[in-house]
Structure formats: C-alpha cells, structure tokens
Computed example of a mutant assay.
Amino acid sequence: MIVASWNCRGAGNRCFPRTVKDIVYKLQIDVLCLMETRISGTRADGVIRKLGFSNWIRLEASGFARGIWVLWNEDSMHVDYICSSTQIIHCKIVDVKHNESFFATFVYGETSPQKRIPLWLSLKAIAEATEEAWLVIGDFNTFLDTTDKMGGSLANHGAMENFADCIREVELFALPIEGEKFTIIVVNDGQRTPQGKYSKRLFRYQSAWSLEESFKEVVYSSWDNVEWCEGARKFEKAALSWNDTVVGNIMKKKKQVIHRLEGIDRVRQNNVNGCNGETGTPNSSMLPLRYSTEDNELKRFKMIMGTGSRTRRS
C-alpha cells in the first residue's frame, strides 16, 4: 500500500488533473492527500472528479489558501472519516486486499508558529486515543532540523522546538528518506544584475521543442542514469541552452513567416485577378514556388503558438 501527500500549491490549473493522474499511475498510489489546493465548492468538486478517484474527503480552502483533499478508490481501500480541524483530517484506512488497517492524520500546518499551536494540541489528543498503528503525513510548515531546509528565511528555532516536543510527546518517529531530499527546483541562470542580485530565468516547456529531432537527445541525456530531480535540473539547464542555439525566438520566427506569407498572398491575389483566357484560371507560372513550403511552416507555427493567422486565403 502506498500513501502519499503533495503540497500542490493550487489545483486550479487546467493541466493539474493530468499531472495527478500521471503521478498516481507511475507511483501506484493508493491514497493521495493534496494540500494547499486553494479552491473549494463546486469548482473543487469538478477538479476532483477528473483525478480518477472514486471517493474523497475535502477540507475546504479558506479563500485562496489552505485546503486538504484525501482521495482513494473504494474497490481497494476504505477510508473512514473520524474528525478534522482547519489543519488536519484524521481517519482510519483499511486495505481491502490485505485486510490491514491503521489510523492516518493528514496535516497542512499554518505558516504562523502561533497558529500551529492548535495543531500540536490536536496531535497530542489523537495520540492519547490511538493504540493501533498511526501515520502522520503532510506539510507541517516547519521542520525538526536546519538541514531539512534549503534557502529562504532563517530558521525559527522556537518553532522547531515546538515541533520536536510534539513528536517526542506523541511518540512518533520520522521515516527514513529515500532518493532526493529536496524536491522543489528553482531555475536560476546564475547571471548577476548590475545591482549584484541574481536574475531569474523562469523555465517554461515549449511545444515547439518536440518538433525538433535533436530535442530527443536533450531529454535522453538529462535523465541518463540519474535520479528524477537531478535529471530535471540537468534538463532545465540543457533545454534552455539548446533552445537558445537551435530554436531561437519562436515569436520572432512566426512574425517573419507571417510577413512572408502576406507578401505571397498579395501576389496570389494579383494573379487571380489577372486570369488567362476564358477559363478564368490564374497564371500558375506566376505563383511563388515557395508557397507550399511557407504555408506548411505557418501551419506548424499556428500549432505551436495556438493562435490564428492574419493572412487571407482566397
């Protein structure tokens, strides 16, 4: 059985359902908890129905913050709701295939140390009432050791002590980490501005890349015999470099193609207006031989950019 949690930082993106389905399929997840979904009500219901799960428990988001979803398929798992608060969902999970059960508390802690105090009290109360196996999983918005954090603001040692005290009192222990310790990737091209600060270059995958044969080698070489996160970092750097040298500026290329096609259309219109003989057929010898090639190129760029053309068709 695999139970997973993910702070998705918003579930409203139209690509989100497909992303979740891919993760669930690849990792064979049985119970999934999504945190900080930032949507609620009928919109949340609509997104959840696209994720491929038959059952769910939802803790509503507060405005554009918070939100906890627990999702599973009833044919293989039973999840019985017990209680919840603004920071937890507590339930009992039964593995139907193996006839095993345990308690699980899914956590999304407040960002403020003061507001996390009710979370520690809730966990202590649950511990006193629980004698069976108990899993606590999620995002506590704090950590036990400074090595568990990379970058950002300085560590709040008082908040760390509160977390450690709670873990010790309820007699929980941390599961060992396998694979990458940090899974959040920030892309930075390493260039400094005149003010001495690093400038960030956001990474965006371009559909045009998949049309280039040489792009396959960029993908293969990035993930060759490395962990996924390390491969992702290598891919981002390699793809940006490859894009600069091979693809170039797609919008600029598109404008150039459209400009050429507009000129070709003007020639075609003139030829149509000056027909040969009584049949009314245009003088084909006057038509640009490059028209077919240019038209295919325009179609390629229309597919890439998802926009219409300003050129006319007779």
Rank of each mutant, 00 (worst) to 15 (best):
S54C: 01
R300F: 05
P194G: 07
D265T: 13
E262D: 11
D295S: 13
I184Y: 12
Y81L: 14
D165W: 00
R38V: 07
A4K: 04
T86H: 09
S284N: 08
L240W: 01
L121Q: 13
R260Y: 08
V94K: 14
G158M: 10
N225I: 14
N73V: 05
Q195E: 09
W72S: 00
I258C: 02
N270G: 14
L27M: 11
D95V: 04
E60Y: 05
F103W: 11
L175V: 12
R14L: 10
G277E: 08
E74K: 07
N141E: 05
L51I: 05
K254Y: 15
D45H: 04
M286D: 03
I250N: 01
V47G: 04
L240K: 11
F102G: 02
E297W: 00
G190I: 01
N7D: 00
V187Q: 10
G277L: 07
K252H: 12
I184W: 15
Q28S: 13
G263H: 12
S210T: 14
A129T: 10
L287G: 02
F64N: 08
W228Q: 10
G306K: 03
W6D: 03
D295T: 10
M35W: 04
L123A: 10
Q28V: 08
E74S: 15
T193N: 09
L27I: 01
K234E: 00
I39Q: 05
D45A: 08
I23L: 15
Y205N: 09
W56H: 04
I89F: 06
Q269H: 13
W134Q: 12
F102W: 15
A164L: 03
N249R: 01
D244G: 13
F102D: 04
L71V: 00
F16L: 03
A159E: 01
T279G: 15
A44S: 15
K21F: 02
F182D: 09
R290L: 12
E278P: 07
C15A: 14
K115C: 11
K97R: 14
A159P: 01
Q191W: 07
S207Y: 04
A65Q: 09
F103C: 08
N249M: 06
T307G: 01
W228A: 15
W56E: 03
P282Y: 13
A164C: 08
G248N: 01
Y220R: 13
L51A: 04
L135P: 03
H98E: 14
G63L: 12
T146G: 00
I57V: 10
E131Q: 11
S285H: 10
K216N: 07
F106K: 09
M305T: 15
W69D: 03
S214L: 01
F203N: 06
V70G: 02
L154N: 11
D75R: 12
K92G: 05
A125C: 09
V47P: 05
N99Q: 11
M303G: 07
A239R: 06
R66P: 03
F140T: 06
K197A: 08
F106S: 07
T183K: 10
L71W: 04
V94R: 14
K21M: 05
E236Y: 13
L289V: 12
T19I: 02
T142V: 15
N249A: 00
